[in-house]
Design a protein around this nucleic acid. Structure first.
Lengths: 337, 337
DNA sequence: CTGTTAGCGCCTTCAA
DNA sequence: TTGAAGGCGCTAACAG
């Protein structure tokens, strides 16, 4: 049978409470006593029972990751990072896919909170900016860290300066001679849509290029919206020479449509995206894009959360560095004939 | 405050135990009583506290998914399925990335088992066929369900007839006139490698084509091994007219290399893969491949496991149907000149 | 078919 | 610095 705290206490000749103090790193234990308890625990191979701990201590030693699966890769990287942080803190992780935009999604999260009582949540986009959800979490007094949250939607978490990243990439494309640069936007419910659009406009502005509304097409962060957007853009009388897809899926849709039309990328059309998904390396031509350190963002957001839970936290939003990945889908602007 | 089982019992005018029966799907509850309890629970937004449940029930109400992340998409689909099954059974899920092949990975799983005491494990390839791991799990008396396990490596779980699937796809390609069909294999540690290779050989055999050893290249289920394999194959004096990549990543590597050489797919070379990842739809030309119902496999494997845990289980390995996805990367064999 | 009683193993509170 | 008693919310075992 497994040893219980009682057994350890008996073996060490102290009370249960003293063993509990040792295991929870509470003060007020004499060094000598501590050592005796630790030795007894080792001998008995004692492991605290986490259910009992949670039940009595009103903490679950569990955090939950909420996501709306925009992209498997992204989520898996976030998960990896969050797991790494959890491991260090001896915390467990539960997952909660949330169908953002479906009626009752807030209640679904409430169910999770009621059942597992996670000590905190990590929110990924677009849930980070889901106002009804955030309001309810505050009412329920559930703390959370946000990944890529808009201003004021999270007190702690991790983010990236997407706007500056896009502006940087725009400068690269402008340097290649492009002036008619189009953008297929992200979905309206995502905070990233606004940042990336703003970066696009910043880039034009810095290059002294007048924005052309015909070159901004509504998209939704999907491959299909990339195809549809590319069709409209390439059918224009004066089509763009470069297209910025709001994420890699969108950009791949553009490449697909270009290939379908026999348009050579990058010789006749430059394309770039955002996210640096594995696919961006595996399409032909490989995609120029912006690398987002998702794994680190997950790890840091989780750490901020765990620190706050344990009271160690200075808190705050940590801004991580991005990185341009210039590959083969961007090239010099084609010569006019 | 949150409702407890006591509150629900009071509201429904029954005892705590009856509420417990309803929530645990135990028999011996009159239908009318069950409905009354369910209604009361809904009104009070009652959710059983999982810590208390585990403590009293001497079960963790938790299963763990072990994976070695061959592909994010695959794992995320499996996770979705497993979560769906868990939800129904009011079970929680913990994840465990395992670095298969790294020393100490078995101990890492033991750590998981000791700490969380999951009531069972779901194993994904290649861990399903990791003999040292399986042996240890049996020693520890931890039950598990396997996904795509080789014969005898799991008693319960879900699988797919990969061999027949590949043979089917081969028949499709043969019908297009191809006779020099190459295969870039999967990694040796994966059971899928053998099945897919066998299906390839079956396909040749059924078409009366003598296998050519030069047309079978060692790969490892990666994009890079697809590129490397394609290079060797396309440099042959008598190159193949069709290449089967052991998975979609490999096949995409082949397409990439073909594009880099200016070889038109499918006009000059046909390519097909296995898995039906999202990428297979998003490359140009879109990839002919075999669809694997990963989500269902996760759901069913988890359900088999949960049934066994609760004693409801007839058990066994459920074989799921595959589906050919013929897209644009396979076409008639090029005319000889 | 339904209810009662006694813990599950730990932490909290309060006393020493 | 240490300990004793009570209870966290639920289920098992047994009783009706």
């Amino acid at each position: 049978m497994r040893a219980r705290i009682e057994d350890v206490a008996a073996a060490a000749g102290v009370s249960m409470k003293t063993v509990s103090r040792v295991f929870n790193r509470e003060p007020n234990v004499r060094e000598e006593t501590r050592l005796r308890v630790e030795e007894a625990a080792r001998q008995l191979r004692y492991r605290p029972n986490s259910s009992a701990r949670s039940l009595a201590g009103r903490r679950s030693y569990l955090i939950s990751l909420l996501y709306d699966n925009p992209s498997s890769n992204y989520i898996m990287e976030i998960i990896e990072g969050v797991l790494a942080a959890c491991e260090q803190a001896h915390y467990g992780l539960t997952l909660r896919p949330v169908d953002f935009g479906r009626r009752g999604h807030v209640e679904s999260v409430e169910g999770l909170v009621n059942q597992y009582r996670p000590d905190g949540l990590v929110l990924t986009p677009p849930l980070t900016d889901d106002l009804p959800l955030l309001r309810r979490l505050r009412e329920l007094d559930v703390r959370y860290a946000g990944i890529s949250a808009k201003r004021n939607n999270a007190r702690i978490g991790a983010t990236l300066d997407e706007r500056a990243a896009v502006a940087d990439m725009m400068a690269h494309v402008v340097a290649l001679g492009h002036r008619r640069i189009a953008h297929i936007t992200g979905h309206r419910s995502h905070g990233a849509r606004a940042w990336r659009l703003a970066g696009y406009l910043d880039g034009l502005n810095q290059a002294g290029i007048e924005p052309d509304p015909a070159l901004v097409i509504e998209g939704e962060f999907s491959f299909e919206s990339g195809i549809a957007g590319a069709r409209r853009l390439l059918d224009l009388d004066d089509p763009p020479t470069a297209i910025f897809g709001a994420n890699d899926d969108t950009a791949c849709g553009v490449i697909y449509e270009a290939a379908a039309r026999g348009l050579a990328v990058p010789d006749q059309l430059s394309v770039f995206g955002f996210d640096d998904t594995p696919m961006s390396r595996q399409v032909w031509p490989s995609l120029s894009t912006i690398r987002q350190p998702s794994r680190d963002m997950g790890r840091i957001a989780a750490r901020q959360l765990l620190d706050e839970i344990s009271g160690h936290g200075a808190g705050g939003i940590v801004r991580l560095p991005y990185q341009l990945q210039i590959r083969h889908s961007t090239g010099p602007v084609p010569q006019r004939r």
